Amino acid sequence: MKAASFGYMSVLELDEALQALARSEGAAKAMSGGQSLGPMLNLRLARPPQVIDIAGLPLLRQVKAVAEGIEIGAGVTHSEIEDGHHAPLVGHPMQGVAAGIAYRAVRNRGTVGGSLAHADPAADWVVVLPALGARVRLRSPRGERTVEAAGFMLGAYTTVLEPDELVTAVIVPRHTPSTRWGYHKLCRKPGEFAEASAAIYLDEAAGVSRIVLGAVDGPPLLLDALASAVARDGASAASRAQLRAAVAAALPERDPIDLKMFTACLERALEHAGVVARTQATGAPT
């Protein structure tokens, strides 16, 4: 199947894109890498009257150090992060996450902002950025606002974006010696969307602790109580039984197989972060 007929507009100025979105009253769709919207067009799951191509916007292609951390333009591709094209992100947790997204061909075109705006519950950035405590910068003809990544996604394929708004950047904290990080996802085969995922971010110096479950069919789930306990007590708060109990409380409707998968993701993310020993994390969850 091929896409239904639509108008195409390529823009080189952000304001031009925003005005076009505003004129369409929510009917037009912005496209950057096209790795999500393209298949939806071809399957006719999306039938916008107009597609606004924002891939060439220079403003969305920048990465820079700012007072709050690192500002990443929404049009930066996964492969650019993976390959260390931007010095502020070399050695950052995002570099390793980017390397595991889908396939190289997808990473060459897919963008951070596009993935966030698409809001697939099983995607990587929708769980990783809330764990990092990232903030998302949005712009419309009415002005600019910044929202917490943890509150950006409202449901599957649903976000706080207004019809005339675009994601322009995400701001993430710098990776420092005081931070510990872990991320793990389970896929049926490499390159596919996750069946379960978990991320942990600890910054002892800043007093920050976050544990997030992804691929939960809706917005990612923050396990605040577990994160606080792990930050306070370390491995003694992260036994398999404790992790399974936290998962079961967060996902009460899930079957035992799902609970095993999410528990395994949590264990391996905690191992990655150095919270639990490898011998514990690599055992088969019960």
Score class of each variant (00 low, 15 high):
54 I>Y: 12
83 D>P: 00
70 I>T: 10
35 Q>L: 08
56 G>D: 04
35 Q>R: 10
64 K>E: 15
47 R>T: 15
70 I>A: 09
43 L>G: 15
43 L>W: 15
85 H>E: 09
75 G>E: 10
57 L>K: 07
59 L>N: 04
77 T>M: 08
84 G>I: 03
54 I>M: 06
44 R>A: 11
39 P>H: 14
89 L>P: 05
52 I>Q: 01
64 K>D: 12
79 S>D: 04
91 G>C: 02
52 I>N: 02
68 E>N: 00
80 E>L: 05
38 G>Q: 07
89 L>V: 09
65 A>I: 02
50 Q>N: 02
50 Q>W: 01
75 G>K: 11
91 G>Q: 05
55 A>Q: 09
83 D>A: 07
46 A>M: 11
76 V>I: 13
69 G>T: 11
73 G>T: 11
39 P>D: 12
75 G>Q: 08
83 D>S: 07
74 A>Q: 12
78 H>G: 00
73 G>S: 14
56 G>H: 06
60 L>G: 08
71 E>H: 12
34 G>Q: 06
44 R>S: 09
85 H>V: 12
79 S>N: 04
80 E>I: 10
79 S>T: 02
82 E>G: 01
60 L>E: 05
40 M>F: 13
83 D>F: 00
50 Q>S: 03
87 A>G: 00
45 L>A: 14
87 A>Q: 10
61 R>M: 01
63 V>R: 05
81 I>L: 11
81 I>R: 04
64 K>S: 15
42 N>S: 12
59 L>H: 10
38 G>N: 04
71 E>C: 15
82 E>L: 03
40 M>N: 12
89 L>N: 08
84 G>Y: 04
42 N>M: 11
54 I>P: 09
49 P>M: 02
72 I>Q: 12
37 L>T: 01
67 A>G: 12
57 L>S: 05
62 Q>I: 03
64 K>Y: 04
80 E>P: 06
46 A>Y: 07
84 G>L: 03
63 V>Y: 06
36 S>C: 12
56 G>T: 02
87 A>F: 04
50 Q>G: 04
77 T>Q: 08
54 I>C: 09
89 L>I: 09
57 L>P: 02
39 P>F: 15
61 R>Y: 00
70 I>E: 09
35 Q>E: 06
91 G>A: 04
52 I>M: 00
41 L>D: 10
74 A>C: 14
40 M>H: 13
80 E>V: 10
46 A>P: 00
68 E>F: 00
44 R>N: 13
47 R>D: 12
55 A>L: 03
89 L>M: 07
46 A>T: 05
57 L>C: 03
37 L>P: 03
47 R>Q: 15
73 G>L: 14
60 L>N: 08
59 L>C: 08
70 I>V: 15
76 V>Y: 08
59 L>Q: 15
42 N>V: 07
87 A>S: 10
67 A>P: 02
39 P>W: 12
42 N>E: 11
87 A>T: 06
55 A>G: 03
